[in-house]
């Protein structure tokens, strides 16, 4: 906005004739942004646009090992979709992916908010320490994080089993966390939430410091409980931040692949399938690339539906600038 105002004011002050430039130069100026954009646009079209188009085409083809050798699929119409929509495992996996995303996102947002509020309460030294810790966790690469958690919950020498046994929470001696899918998923969700909390916390804390202290203090004097003042003052003020954080978290958690894949050593049982894993296994393990593409495309569709809110918000911000 501010960048536009000087330009808008100028024509009134300056005589328009003197501002008129030769036609050639004006044309060049008009073409400049397109010329600048062209290389990036061409590369994006080639590396993203074409594969996306190809994914759609693949989902209507039979593409097995034979077709892989010939580099050519066989068109079979909507048979792939008919097959997955009649596959009870597929619906199971879709529901599981949604439930998993919901668990991860809600835990991340709630715990992230609590830690951010804690940051406003502690002294400067503890705040520095906690922030530094969060940044280290944030910086930890996903593959590294998975290895660490795998080691911590190792059935034989894992520190988790020992600690839980020592705390008399039960006998966890040689407990295999992945034998039961529920406890296995609990480990995976913890790992993902642990990795996601820093970004949410640090962003929310930055937002919280913007909320005027006068407002919450005035509310406290008027007798509002901390919870009410959080709900009625802080939350509405931070709503735009929450919209972005929640949409980003949904987008990230819905497509989780690495954490599950690596923690199950590259061969998860069907109890550990998410949509991304199901599509991967169908394609690269069973060599049914057409079926895998159909699953992947359903995933992309759900994803774009979810991220509509986020994109709209980001475009609005991009426009305001």
């Amino acid at each position: 906005m501010s960048s536009r105002s000087p330009a808008a004011a100028a024509p009134l002050a300056a005589p328009s004739v003197s501002r008129r430039r030769p036609l050639g130069r004006r044309l060049r100026r008009a073409a400049a942004p397109y010329a600048l954009l062209l290389p990036a646009a061409a590369v994006i079209a080639a590396v993203l646009g074409y594969p996306l188009y190809y994914l759609v085409r693949l989902s209507f083809q039979h593409y097995g090992l034979f077709q892989l050798v010939r580099h050519k699929g066989e068109s079979i119409g909507t048979a792939n979709y008919a097959e997955i929509f009649h596959d009870s495992l597929f619906w199971h996996v879709v529901l599981r992916t949604i439930a998993f995303t919901f668990a991860c996102v809600s835990l991340t947002i709630v715990l992230g908010t609590l830690v951010a509020l804690l940051l406003t309460k502690v002294g400067p030294f503890i705040r520095l320490l906690l922030t530094a810790g969060l940044i280290f966790v944030w910086a930890t690469p996903v593959v590294v994080a998975v290895d660490i958690w795998q080691w911590m919950v190792d059935y034989e020498f894992g520190v988790a089993n020992w600690t839980l046994t020592a705390l008399h929470l039960g006998d966890f001696n040689h407990h295999d966390w992945f034998a039961n899918p529920w406890s296995g998923w609990a480990v995976i969700v913890s790992l993902i939430v642990w990795g996601a909390i820093p970004f949410v916390t640090i962003t929310l804390y930055a937002g919280l410091t913007q909320v005027s202290r006068d407002l919450t203090e005035a509310a406290a004097i008027d007798g509002a409980s901390p919870w009410r003042s959080f709900r009625d003052i802080t939350l509405p003020l931070l709503k735009p931040i929450y919209v972005i954080l929640i949409s980003l978290s949904i987008i990230w958690d819905f497509q989780v692949f690495n954490q599950v894949w690596i923690i199950r050593n590259g061969s998860p049982s069907t109890d550990y399938y998410l949509m991304s894993i199901y599509a991967y296994v169908e394609s690269f393990k069973i060599s049914e690339y057409g079926l895998g593409s159909a699953i992947a495309l359903v995933m992309v569709a759900i994803m774009l539906l979810i991220s509509f809110v986020y994109i709209r918000q980001m475009v609005r911000i991009g426009d305001a600038e």
Partner: peptide
């Protein structure tokens, strides 16, 4: 927003 896991195929 497009999941890379989908594009890998």
């Amino acid at each position: 927003m497009i999941p890379l896991n989908a594009l890998i195929i």
